[in-house]
């Protein structure tokens, strides 16, 4: 098939042509280095140990939710309900800490996994585009969170010990960052070293062919969204533990942040390319920007605008237009 008649972007193509040899992750790494330099120059406090720990702390949480989101995106979909899932999980955690102690953690995680599974089920079974499914389900999860508790729930003091799983330190390293590492390794292994992970890549790369090659599309999609729910659940649990509280809007900002992390890291929105490693870099970029802008004194909403622009630029550069003849 030749490219007659399919839109041509001369200027962008030239730039891309020059950089074409590089994998998408290099752009993200480049951006990371660039921003670190900018902020280090702009503020004396950026490169302090304390600040690095702060970045690590917030990065761990964003990493968890972004790890889940990337699986949804790798199949060519998107999960707009990660915010709702995080919030719901945070509320469930806080509510069950008193009666269940440690077991509140597995329970909350199970709730998030179930939520993700529901998303996958509706998307696959009823053939509803994922952005509608998750736009709708986000509302549902938030409602459930409100039903559990309208007011923010605080962690009972008796549970502080349990919450140390996240908040404490082990061998001098903050648990939350250890958890971040473990979560990264877990999702990385799932993507690269399990059949499901491979099938998700196949599905995103060429759905028709993967069906012809025997991949169970229904099953793989559902698992991808379940993993997304799992990631959001982990993030929700970590954040709630950090804050010692849970409330229905806790996760809302992470919808944008997780998608931006994935996209900036170089994972394609059509799926089949990029993945966990790319998203790690994307998460670092986001966390650095977030932290750096705060330090320099740029207000939160300017950051939002900046991220919006970054997302547009990242997708404009990395989107593989040759795959689709029609861009909707």
């Amino acid at each position: 098939m030749h490219k007659d008649g399919i839109g041509k972007q001369p200027a962008i193509k030239q730039i891309r042509g020059k950089l074409a040899g590089l994998p998408a992750i290099s752009y993200a790494l480049g951006m990371l280095v660039l921003f670190i330099v900018i902020f280090a120059v702009g503020s004396a406090t950026f490169l302090t140990r304390y600040n690095m720990l702060t970045i690590g702390n917030s990065a761990a949480i964003l990493l968890a939710v972004a790890m889940g989101q990337v699986f949804a995106i790798l199949t060519g979909g998107i999960d707009l309900s990660v915010g709702g899932i995080m919030s719901l999980v945070s509320v469930v955690l806080m509510k069950t800490l008193e009666p269940l102690g440690f077991w509140a953690y597995p329970l909350s995680l199970a709730v998030g996994i179930a939520a993700g599974f529901l998303n996958g089920l509706i998307n696959s079974r009823f053939r509803i585009p994922s952005f509608i499914t998750t736009l709708g389900s986000n509302g549902i999860f938030m409602s459930i969170a409100y039903m559990i508790s309208i007011k923010p729930l605080s962690a009972p003091s008796s549970s502080f010990g349990v919450l140390d799983i996240v908040n404490g330190t082990t061998l001098g390293i903050r648990n939350i960052m250890l958890l971040g590492v473990i979560i990264f390794v877990l999702f990385f292994v799932i993507q690269r070293y399990t059949i499901t992970g491979r099938n998700i890549m196949l599905l995103g790369s060429n759905e028709k062919m993967s069906w012809l090659s025997g991949v169970d599309i229904f099953k793989v999609r559902t698992i991808a969204f379940t993993l997304s729910g799992f990631g959001a659940a982990l993030a929700g649990v970590m954040l709630a533990s950090n804050l010692y509280s849970g409330y229905p809007t806790l996760g809302t900002v992470y919808i944008l942040n997780s998608i931006a992390s994935v996209v900036i890291g170089g994972t394609a929105m059509t799926g089949g390319a990029g993945g966990v490693l790319n998203t790690l870099v994307g998460v670092m970029v986001m966390s650095v920007i977030n932290n750096g802008m705060n330090i320099i004194g740029i207000d939160v909403y300017a950051q939002q605008s900046f991220l919006g622009v970054l997302v547009i630029i990242a997708v404009a550069i990395s989107f593989d237009r040759s795959k689709l003849s029609v861009i909707k």
Partner: peptide
């Protein structure tokens, strides 16, 4: 084969 036989984004091994 390009459309139905292979995932062209992926490598030979995959």
């Amino acid at each position: 084969r390009r459309i139905e036989g292979l995932a062209t984004d992926l490598d030979i091994a995959d």
